[in-house]
Nucleic acid binder design. Structure first.
Lengths: 149, 149
DNA sequence: TTGACTGCAAACGATTTGCAATTGC
DNA sequence: GCAATTGCAAATCGTTTGCAGTCAA
């Protein structure tokens, strides 16, 4: 790993530790492993995929803990759960607002920024509905890799 | 039911029959019931909710059939599956492009039109990713009903 | 020390599936 | 009549939970 990204990772982990303390969460070995792995994986892994990777380093970690940790971190806004039409949920570390591009074929999820979307006004009738906390765009299609096969 | 909407329903059911035939799907009593119920329910029911309602009319229909039918209709683009962070999937008859407003509290899903969104250009980097078939916006918030309690 | 966290195993709930009977075309 | 579809029951799969031991603070 280039030293620049290693440094960034360290910073993000420090922020994670800080957020945990602020939320009253203990900083356990497992939580650290899970969050670090999530930061390093750009591919929105499922709980199972995450577990498989971490087990290589720490064979004793259990899948339940991965699930439980992700749920806890999600509750505290440190992790996002992405529900697609697939059976399994996917996760990502919360970094910056962005949107998702999902390949209907291989189910891979790609992050995209879309400032034009972030800035447009909400539809009118939303106002009397209540308060919006977040809005998100999801695009479905076929990626070039799948299209070429 | 006012006669106008009854007439509309009949039209939609005729379209359904037509689409089934076009897709090579047999028009069974159960499929008709399920699709009609879905058309009449504006609240994006879950498979179970749908089943509960239909059982009143036809006690012999099984939950499996509801699941199977929804999956079949979804494959043929007659029904949309809406996956939220909830455990259960919700369904809607495909009518016109629209977007979703989800209350984080009561989990109810409301349809909204949002032509401004439909018309904005896709983010740039999407073009080299592949082909987009559809795009959809989801907004999360708290509805006034939940906020007032 | 002490309550939060973990691993284990068992439970859970939504959805799917194999099979024999039934039904639409 | 034949293939598609259904109902039934059992299986599956992702995820959650109870409990006793362990660990961070």
């Amino acid at each position: 790993m280039p030293s620049a990204s290693r440094k960034k990772l360290t910073q993000q982990m420090e922020l994670f530790n800080y957020s945990c303390r602020a939320a009253g969460l203990k900083i356990t070995h497992q939580r650290t492993l899970i969050y670090r792995e999530l930061l390093q994986q750009p591919d929105h892994p499922t709980a199972e995929a995450l577990h498989k990777r971490i087990v290589r380093e720490v064979p004793s970690i259990s899948l339940d803990t991965v699930y439980r940790t992700l749920a806890t971190l999600e509750q505290h806004g440190l992790v996002n759960r992405i529900q697609t039409a697939e059976s399994q949920a996917r996760f990502e570390a919360v970094i910056a607002p962005h949107h998702h591009l999902i390949c209907s074929c291989c189910k891979k999820v790609l992050d995209v920024e879309w400032p034009e979307f972030d800035h447009i006004e909400l539809p009118e009738n939303v106002r009397n509905w209540g308060t919006i906390n977040s809005k998100n765009a999801v695009m479905y299609g076929t990626c070039t890799a799948c299209a070429s096969t």
